[in-house]
């Protein structure tokens, strides 16, 4: 559904001097700086997949999403989305994709959301009966009923986001680009959006590419993640392997009845307990070993927090 090969994006940005002298000087000369936002990025996504797109701020996530949606022209490289070259912004292509940006909104600010829906139905040239059915389905799933006739500016952030999603999905796109769809939302609204995205993916079979800074979003929604930093690919694969490879393994903590020894096999003592960080394959053997060597009072095995895994990954090589 999405095929990206050796994608590059280089921006030139003007440098502007500081202070009085700098601002006068920038009248006459324009120094420019080249910024490489995306570097040699390649990946492919199958129809119906839900993929998390991760990276630190300024990693090039939004730039990539925009290139895939046809809003930005890459400096070089190929990309095919739903069988189209996005750059042409062919109406047939635009009918098959959608972009939701958590920080920006397309809803008509002064009107109730129902008017934006009506406008989008007309602009996308949707069949009235079918579009109504989709609209009703979205209204039900997102529980928009009570919001439909209130002006958008009177809605809360979470309510607005739900309406954004509905407005973006009326034309039943095959590809969903979601850029930080839960940003700024409270925990409950995040959960609603998350559940909705999963549900919609199941129902419509649409492909989802999602960026988020909330790891809970990724953990709940994305079996597969693509990680970029500094514009370059860092990791592409199952979410669970990510923790395995970069998390430094699972944390096994053993509390003993008596005082714990300084070291024991793979374990060392931390805060009075025996602690070991191990790849999952070795966990069973280590636990078995500990159980046989000491009197165990309590035992726990912790997954490394996803945030830690990522910050390790981001720090590496950058």
């Amino acid at each position: 559904m999405i095929q990206v090969t050796a994608l590059n994006k280089v921006y030139t940005v003007p440098k502007r001097g500081e202070g009085l002298w700098g601002s006068i000087r920038s009248l006459f000369s324009r120094e420019v700086e080249e910024v490489r936002a995306v570097a040699d990025l390649s990946f492919s996504i199958q129809a119906g997949e839900r993929v998390g797109f991760l990276g630190p701020n300024g990693a090039g996530k939004t730039t990539t999403l925009k290139m895939l949606a046809g809003l930005l022209v890459p400096s070089s490289g190929e990309r095919v989305v739903a069988g189209f070259d996005p750059s042409k912004r062919d109406p047939a292509f635009l009918r098959r994709i959608t972009l939701v940006m958590g920080q920006k909104q397309q809803l008509l600010w002064d009107l109730p959301p129902i008017e934006t829906f009506a406008l989008n139905r007309a602009l996308f040239g949707l069949d009235e009966a079918e579009a109504r059915r989709t609209q009703d389905e979205l209204i039900e799933l997102l529980e928009l009923g009570p919001l439909l006739n209130r002006p958008v500016r009177n809605l809360s952030l979470g309510e607005r986001m739900k309406c954004e999603l509905a407005a973006a999905l009326l034309h039943r796109p095959d590809v969903l680009f979601l850029d930080e769809p839960t940003i700024g939302l409270d925990v409950r609204a995040q959960g609603t959006v998350r559940r909705f995205i999963a549900e919609w993916n199941e129902r419509s079979g649409a492909t989802v590419l999602l960026t988020s800074h909330y790891m809970a979003d990724i953990a709940a929604l994305c079996p597969r993640v693509i990680v970029i930093a500094g514009g370059a690919l860092r990791y592409d694969g199952p979410l669970k392997d990510l923790a395995e490879r970069y998390g430094g393994g699972r944390k096994v903590v053993v509390r003993t009845r008596d005082e714990a020894p300084e070291t024991l096999g793979p374990f060392t003592r931390e805060d009075g307990a025996l602690v070991a960080r191990l790849p999952s394959a070795e966990v069973a053997a280590a636990v078995d070993f500990a159980l046989r060597q000491v009197a165990v009072a309590d035992l726990s095995i912790e997954e490394p927090p996803l945030e830690d895994v990522l910050s390790k990954l981001f720090a590496e090589r950058s």
Binding site: S23, I24, S26, L27
Partner: peptide, 12 residues
């Protein structure tokens, strides 16, 4: 005044 001038230059 200085900042205002710099601003004016920026929005020339």
């Amino acid at each position: 005044l200085r900042i205002g001038f710099a601003e004016a230059v920026a929005y020339r």
